[in-house]
Write a protein that binds this DNA or RNA. Structure first.
Length: 410
RNA sequence: CGGGCCGUAGUGUAGCGGUAGCACGAGUCCUUCGGGAGGAUUUAGCCCGAGUUCAAAUCUCGGCGGCCCGACCA
């Protein structure tokens, strides 16, 4: 892709008012644009990153045996009434011209259970796992921290359906493993934290927290074992001895919740009348679990954790392009050759062929965009019969032979 | 929803009762070309409403909007 033909405009100034790193970096680099508080546009290059997050999630969930579908954002009041969630404070409620009332979905248990009544009737139809990646709406009293807390955001919601609690229990922990793997691939170190189930369940649920001072949740965890609890339910405090292993000290840190998993039981299947017949012919409510990941929040979290003062440093899986090929004065013919060969090799390359941008501007943009690998072709490199290679994550600048590019960039 | 700070060209800012200025951007021309280049020239702005005043970007009140703290966060 040629930069002269692709919309990738950066801003020359840091956005005023924004304090959070993800908002500053993503806005300035032109990944996102703010439409109103907590509501963002994903600009072309930002959308590429978001799609990469989604594709990692899809890959893992598809391999896990879940099927993707897409549900409506506009959800008739009758469904919310079924479960008593019409009065949920964060629900955006609206009316059409005929007086019909709707809520904009913040999760989709009601929609899905009602649909599945047509398709599930026997234990033979279970288990079943369906997910979607969809825009969610929440009337947040206070949107904040760029992509970390918005009123409109992308959410991957997975729902599992089981014949019995035991099957759910097994699936739940398998899902937890897949989640840990997904976050790892996305460049996030997460901790599995016990949390409250809110309106959904009286049991503990589990959150995947990225520990960082900028997170809005407070986590108490053991330095020695896997014990970790959200402050909202925790009875331990920093400095105490771990109640689980009795050895480690409890530490306190903030976290960004990038995912959560819930055992819903029959909380939603019962009101919807989503039942199955077991082997004995007995009618029972389907047992459910739900599992969420916020791709847009992940984008914010990654920016928050992986950056320097010049811009974002994307993990390679999320880099909007594999290579940023920057052409400086005297390097045009060389850059074009390299561009062609990289394209031919199927490498996703962003070629800065702009004639009206100064070298400084191009190099600044390269840092802001944070593409994993930077190649520079200039009079200097042509003279040396080499090409310059730099990883965005490092500081070393290598002069390499052109045919060696593929050794580094694959 | 309570509290704080703040709304001035596309962006970032100065002006704090008396002619709205600067930088970047954008347009045109020339020069330049390895870390947001230089010169010439053009372009574009006081969030909205009411009040005080001879006079309001500036003071007062109300609204709207943004960020931050708190509450909230299925």
């Amino acid at each position: 892709m040629k930069q002269s033909q692709f919309f990738a405009k950066t801003l020359k100034e840091w956005p005023k008012d924004e304090e959070s790193a993800n908002a500053r970096l993503l806005l300035r680099a032109g990944f996102i644009a703010k439409s109103s508080s907590g509501v963002y546009t994903f600009l072309p290059i930002g959308l590429k990153v978001l799609e990469k997050i989604n594709s990692v999630i899809r890959e893992e969930l598809n391999a896990f045996g879940a099927s993707e579908l897409l549900m409506p954002a506009l959800v008739s009041k009758k469904y919310w009434d079924q479960t008593g969630r019409w009065q949920t404070p964060v629900l955006y409620r609206l009316q059409d011209s005929s007086g019909q009332e709707y809520g904009l979905g913040f999760t989709h248990e009601e929609v899905l259970t009602n649909i599945l009544k047509q398709f599930i009737s026997s234990w033979r139809d279970l288990p079943l796992a369906l997910y979607q990646i969809q825009t969610k709406f929440r009337d947040e009293p206070r949107a904040k921290s760029g992509l970390l807390r918005g009123k409109e955001f992308l959410m991957k919601d997975l729902y599992s359906f089981h014949a019995g609690e035991k099957d759910l229990e097994k699936y739940y922990w398998r899902a937890a493993k897949i989640y840990a793997k997904i976050f790892k691939r996305l460049g996030l170190k997460t901790k599995i934290v016990e949390a409250s189930g809110g309106d959904f369940t009286k049991d503990f649920t589990h959150e995947f927290q990225v520990l960082t001072p900028v997170g809005e949740d407070t986590i108490f965890y053991c330095q020695n074992c896997s014990f970790a609890q959200n402050k909202e339910i925790s009875r331990v405090g920093a400095g105490q001895t771990c109640p689980l292993c009795k050895k480690g000290e409890i530490l306190k840190e903030n976290g960004i919740e990038v995912g959560n998993i819930f055992k819903l039981g029959s909380r939603f299947s019962k009101p919807a009348g989503l039942n199955y017949k077991d082997k004995d012919g007995e009618v029972k409510p389907v047992i459910m679990g739900s599992y969420g990941i916020g791709p847009t929040r992940i984008m914010g979290a990654v920016a928050e954790l992986h950056h320097d003062d010049k811009g974002v440093i994307w993990p390679q899986v999320l880099s909007p392009f594999k290579v940023h090929l920057v052409e400086l004065a005297g390097g045009r013919a060389e850059a074009q050759k390299i561009y062609k060969s990289l394209c031919a090799a199927g490498i996703d390359v962003f070629y800065d062929d702009r004639k009206d941008a100064s070298p400084g501007e191009k190099l600044f943009d390269a840092d802001l965009l944070g593409i994993s690998w930077r190649l520079v072709a200039s009079a200097k490199t042509v003279l040396a019969k080499k090409i310059e290679l730099k990883a965005r994550s490092g500081s070393e600048i290598k002069l390499i032979a052109r045919n060696q590019i593929f050794k580094y960039v694959k």
